[in-house]
Amino acid sequence: MDVMNIVSAVVVLAVMGAVFGLILAVASKVFEVKKDPREEEILSHLAGANCGGCGFAGCGACAAAIVEGKAPVTACAPAGAENAAAIAAIMGMEAPSGERKVAFVRCNGGVHAGKRFEYRGVQDCIGASKVAAGPLDCSFGCFGLGSCVSACQFGAMSIGPNGSAVVDPEKCTDCGACMKACPRKLIVEVPASAKVHVACANLDKGKAAMSVCSSSCIGCGLCQKECRKDAIHVVNGVAVIDYAKCVGCKLCTKVCPRDAILPIATAEEKEKYKAVKKAQAEKAAAAAKAAAEKAAAEAPKAEG
């Protein structure tokens, strides 16, 4: 009986499937573990590919970590900004701002910086920093041994032409790996749209900062005076830009006597700006003089 064979096979397997299904259904009720309901909601906003890109074992673990606060709401990169905002709403947080941020190395010293000794140990910044506090005269500067370069998984870091680390803002994803790798904590987060950066972290003032490196910020405050938007200030001996106010006019780069503000203005630009300023000053002085003379000329008339 061929037909009976087919029927019995179908029936037996269907019954087995139904029984196992029933057992699982009952088990899921009996062995139910109360989960944070937010976990399920967050899970629905993750990419669901279990790619492991967030560093957790699958999307479920990532959702659990977000609920526990161990992972940021933006932990799932493939899910995108929209879903990150939705997750933030679930967690009762503000949506992360849309502004892209990138890493920036606060040192442009490299070959400009004086060396106390030749370091020939393991080619690693942490290693170098352990030997007599590092080979540099400057106790804030970049060693240029590339711990951040090897920490970067996106190929965005490199040792620049003058020997200190630089970030390629196009490739940078602001993952923060380089910031953790740098023993001198030189790498900070800046808005990708920012046009000027202070490439020095030396907190010493005047001569102390001047003697260790030819491109150090000495805290002279010229940039602070020059800025029309009140966006750059000398704080603890080093210039700091307030990116909320900075419009990127680059006036500060032109007045900096130490070329510590990137992008470095060329000598030509500096001369031009000096000439413009001089002309402006002369004009202002002339106007003031004329006004004074006019006032002096009018004064006796009034008396008379």
């Binding site: 019995s8 397997l13 499937g17 196992f20 573990v33």
Partner: peptide
């Protein structure tokens, strides 16, 4: 019993899949 030895592969996959699911739930709770 039902002369269905030729269905072993299908039946065993069914058994293993539900067994693993069951073990997972059981372990999670206990």
């Amino acid at each position: 019993k039902f002369n269905l030895e030729y269905m072993q592969t299908v039946a065993f996959i069914l058994v293993i899949a539900s067994l693993v699911q069951f073990i997972e739930m059981f372990l999670q709770k206990s």
